[in-house]
Amino acid sequence: MVDKNKIYSKNKDIVTREIDDELILMPIYKTNSEINKMYTLNETAAFMWDKIDGKNTVSEIINMLIGRYEGVNEEELSADFQEFIADMKSIKAIV
């Protein structure tokens, strides 16, 4: 379970490219053993990524998502965002 008061920041060692509504994430590597790991975020995930800025708390971002996706179940949005946080943490894209 993610602490909803937690504030996450983007890892500075990551390159992002916005193409159409999607976002490509490419971590910077210092050895050849991890290369070719690239991640593509869809529009919703790209919105979540944008809001992780070292200022917004998890619950604030969930509220922004609720505001953006009217009609979508709040619990579902919260679960999606928490899953996104876990994914991004696992690839060290956020700290």
Binding site: D13, V15, R17, I24, M26, I28, Y29, K30, N32, I35
Partner: peptide, 12 residues
Amino acid sequence: FWNKKDVNYIFS
């Protein structure tokens, strides 16, 4: 891989 500016350039 090690340089952010260069990775950005290759992407472009």
